[in-house]
Write a protein that binds this DNA or RNA. Structure first.
Lengths: 215, 215
DNA sequence: AGGAACCAACCGACTGCTCGGTCGGGCAAT
DNA sequence: ATTGCCCGACCGAGCAGTCGGTTGGTTCCT
């Protein structure tokens, strides 16, 4: 066995002249780090390429433009999050959805760079001309739709009160997530992110829960 | 009348050789608009100067650097907000403080550019090297201190329950403000900003209020 | 088996542009 | 004559993206 370990992997795709897949992934990783540290506008593709050990042209071989690089980063991160939230194929509804928000927050507290990335993009992409604007809009409308279904289910199955102010609760729950992330990124000592989300959800259950949930 | 309209403005203050004070204020106004539209990093002082009707060098006469311009903008906006919140010399405490947050939100919903400005700066200035980083940190710690006093007072005067989770409530209340602003800036149709804040505060009162407040 | 053709994966040099900031003035009111 | 206000010309740095390569594994033809 004189071959390096990765040669032993099953061939899968008859892939790769040199190591296209590998550098592509490294580029995505480094790009995410740079965006989260500097923002998309301030980040330069040259520095990303340098840190990933390729030339700028090498980067542009894999991603046709700076915007394309951003899209790829966002797409990857989102699919990771969706896998975490809905990975088992079963979308959590009712109070389970709000509990899932708490776990999401807990998970995020172990990946500060990811939170940074989102905080930055969320603010930058407010501009309709920003390359991630559409992505962000879809992100929020997707979240809202999910929580809307979750509340409908909760009411239907009798675990949530009908008087629950739906629209306001949905927006506010998302705001709590995002706003706590923002403060946490600025000063992770001063703010207990997950604790805040958990306390908020507990409050929701006390106000609008029915049965054992509302304890 | 062959002169453009702005030449006809009355001299008002006879001060300054030409009109130092006036252009300075125009610059601040235009700068705020540009920052809120593009973010601080992407904004260029040349374009600000142009829109304000002076040369770039003219701008740099009034503000020694781009960062100095930002500081001046933030300082002005914050003093306006403080005037609105605490203008009468009496700092609102107890539930009055949370009601003040609702009014602040209502006021903000009439000044979208101002909200944009804050959303952008709050995300950018996360970076410790950002010129507004210290300002932002002070902004948050000031808010937290105020709300902390407010809750202490509420408990002391018997309008808030002692079990109220203080730290979490403070951070979460601020998060609701900021997070709803973020969503509102992205899509002011889809989100009822002030309504969300009001509903949140109402929930707080139901959970932790004592007496007629908790209806 | 051997070689030609092909193509993904890079690289270095370069272009056109924008940026924040400097410098040496001019002009008008005091 | 000084001082506050403002300008045009300019500079060096950094930017995203283009262009014309080279390299080396893969594939197909003989």
């Amino acid at each position: 066995m004189s071959f390096p370990a990765h040669y032993e992997r099953p061939p899968e795709h008859p892939r790769g002249r040199r190591d296209g897949e590998g550098t592509r992934e490294r580029l995505l990783e480094v790009a995410a780090a740079h965006i989260s540290a500097a923002g998309f506008h301030k980040m330069s593709i040259a520095s990303v390429a340098k840190d990933a050990g390729v030339s700028q042209s090498g980067l542009l071989h894999h991603f046709r433009s700076k915007a394309a690089l951003l899209s790829a980063v966002l797409e990857q991160r989102e699919s990771e999050d969706n896998l975490f939230l809905f990975g088992d194929g079963e979308v959590p509804l009712g109070w389970d959805a709000f509990d899932a928000l708490v776990s999401l927050s807990a998970r995020n507290s172990t990946r500060p760079e990811m939170v940074q990335l989102f905080v930055r993009i969320a603010a930058e992409a407010t501009d309709p001309a920003h390359p991630a604007h559409d992505w962000l809009a879809r992100h929020y409308s997707g979240l809202r739709a999910w929580l809307s279904d979750a509340i409908d289910r909760g009411i239907a199955e009798g675990t949530m009160k009908e008087e629950l102010p739906k629209a306001a609760t949905i927006s506010t729950a998302i705001a709590v997530l995002d706003g706590l992330q923002q403060q946490w990124v600025l000063d992770s000592e001063a703010v207990a992110m997950t604790g805040g989300v958990r306390a908020y959800v507990r409050g929701l259950k006390m106000l609008w829960g029915i049965g054992p949930e509302s304890s």
